[in-house]
Computed example of a mutant assay.
Amino acid sequence: MELRVLRLFREVAEGATVTDTATRASVTQPALSRALKRLEHEVGAELFQRSGRALRLTPAGRAFKQHADAVLENYDLGVRAVGELVDPETGVVTLAFLHTLGTWLVPPVLSGFRRRYPRVRFELRQHGEAGLTAELLDGTADLVLTSGDPGDTRITWQRLLVQPLRVAVPPSHRLAKRRQVRLAELAGEPFILLRKGYGLRDTTEALCAQAGFSPIVGFEGDEVETLRGLVTAGLGVALLPLPHTAMFPPSPAEHPAPHLRVSDVVCARDIGIAWPSGRELPPVSESFRQHVLATAPRALPED
């Protein structure tokens, strides 16, 4: 059984036609059909059934594909590991990160690493916390940058820094002239929140509970800067990290939302890096992990 045939099988199994697959592989359609038939003979079962002009996986085909995917993934990881051992200053770092870290933490740690290792490439993905955990457990990411320990024994997490959170209020708000507030003073106010599944949403609800109330949901969004803009527009208040003004400068006509310190509750969140427990990272990813541990604490915006 050849790896090349497994790759062709996977392509057809994922919906490509035999004609298109053969064209991309620079083989004739009859040659590809014969290769798939030989694969079925080796496996001892029909892997495809025809549905019109398309091929669909049989139950045996679906079962076989799971193992074929694992074989190809392990082979590609092995080739990658050997290549990085031969030249550890090249390779690919697969990194997933929390949406809210993409505006201030991820850019400087990536650019600093690329200055040292310009031939290294990155495969980047953004998620909420649940998606980040899945990336690690599925093996599609070597490292993730997230808030808080995932609390899974299959994942190792290390704190990088503690990020302060502030209460953002509209410029015309009754508390806007203050430098600090008690979070309890905002009970009854509409809160602009991230959707369920984001760590900052859970943190906000937990901190409000410590202050003795549940936040009234005024709006739910997917991006911190969207929430900040809606606060500025007067639609509610929010518990947010400090803005990175170098990346998101206010327009001349804009009066940005004041960000007030909180005096009755410790408002902050942990930011950390995580990787799969018990699995040795590829050399280039391990180098990047060490780089992040050394440089991330300096990435916080000034208070």
Rank of each mutant, 00 (worst) to 15 (best):
M1Q: 03
V5N: 02
V5W: 05
L6D: 09
R10L: 12
A22H: 03
A22L: 05
L36V: 05
E40H: 04
H41T: 12
E42A: 09
V43C: 00
V43K: 01
S51F: 05
A54F: 12
G61V: 08
A70V: 01
D76T: 01
G78D: 09
G78S: 03
R80Q: 11
G83T: 08
G83C: 08
E84N: 08
L85R: 15
L85D: 15
E89C: 10
G91Q: 05
V93G: 08
T100S: 15
L101P: 04
G102F: 04
G102D: 14
T103A: 14
W104P: 01
L110R: 12
S111Y: 06
F113E: 06
P118L: 08
V120W: 06
E123I: 08
L124R: 14
H127C: 04
H127T: 07
G128M: 08
A130L: 10
L132C: 14
T133S: 14
T133V: 15
E135D: 12
V144W: 00
T146G: 04
T146Q: 02
S147C: 13
G148F: 03
G148T: 07
D149H: 11
P150E: 07
D152K: 08
W157S: 11
R159C: 02
L160F: 03
L160Y: 00
Q163S: 08
Q163Y: 08
R174C: 09
R182Q: 10
L183N: 06
L183V: 09
L186T: 03
T203S: 15
E205S: 06
G218E: 03
F219C: 03
E223H: 12
V224H: 15
V224I: 14
L230Q: 04
V231W: 00
T232M: 00
G236D: 10
P241A: 03
L242A: 11
T245H: 12
P249T: 02
P250R: 05
A253L: 06
H259D: 04
R261S: 08
D264H: 05
V266W: 07
A274M: 11
G278V: 06
R279E: 15
S287M: 14
Q290P: 00
A294C: 00
A294Q: 03
T295I: 07
A299C: 12
E302Y: 06
D303K: 01
D303G: 09
